[in-house]
Amino acid sequence: MSVRDENIIEVEGLTKAFGDFKAVNEISFVVKRGEIFGFLGANGAGKTTAMKMLIGISTPTSGKAKVAGFDVFTSAEDIKKNIGYMSQKFALYDDLTVRENITFFGGIYGLKRQQIKNKSNQLIEELGLEDVKNQLVGSLPLGWKQKISFSVAMLHEPKIVFLDEPTGGVDPITRRQFWEMIYKAADEGTTIFVTTHYMDEAEYCNRVSIMVNGKIEALDTPQKLKEQFKADNMNDVFLKLARG
């Protein structure tokens, strides 16, 4: 495996409070370079709040966190330049064509015109989009959009890519193709930080953390978690933990 002994994310005692309510309550963990890290939890457990702090768009209440070597308190802008992000809610512009979306995001990420051109051609070829490159993204099936969206989040060759439920509602075949793209990116050294509600996908991660009510209640390889909770699969692990 390509996981390297180098911490790309370091989190210690990270907390986000809204009034008296601690949405994220002193979480600590590290993610290694090239690792596929699954960030699981029930709805409302605090995953999105935690992820917003890590990608530099929400300032923590207390604790420490470094992402790609940058401090979330003082260097949020540097973090944004060094990471990729995709979610199901915010992905691509439906009213732009495939090529226009790539060009737009390339520009946002500060790529030069020639780089954008090369990257576009490469991406269109790799994803087999030649026939639809001039179609509006809104007319494409969700599974295609998600694959394009992932590639766009990787345009500027970020060290880490954050994926927030990237495969929700996607058909089973495309969902698997999507994970093959994730494996490939991880093999090439990109760190993957991913949330999902599909527990079979949790098995594809090198390590998995499970959040319950703002805290990380479990963190290990899928194999060790299954042993620890005497469960046959990750779904059972999740049900045992999150149901309390």
Partner: peptide
């Protein structure tokens, strides 16, 4: 219509 899309495994159950 898709009452459980985006819902975690515990709530789905």
């Amino acid at each position: 219509d898709e009452p459980t899309t985006g819902v975690d495994p515990v709530s789905r159950k």
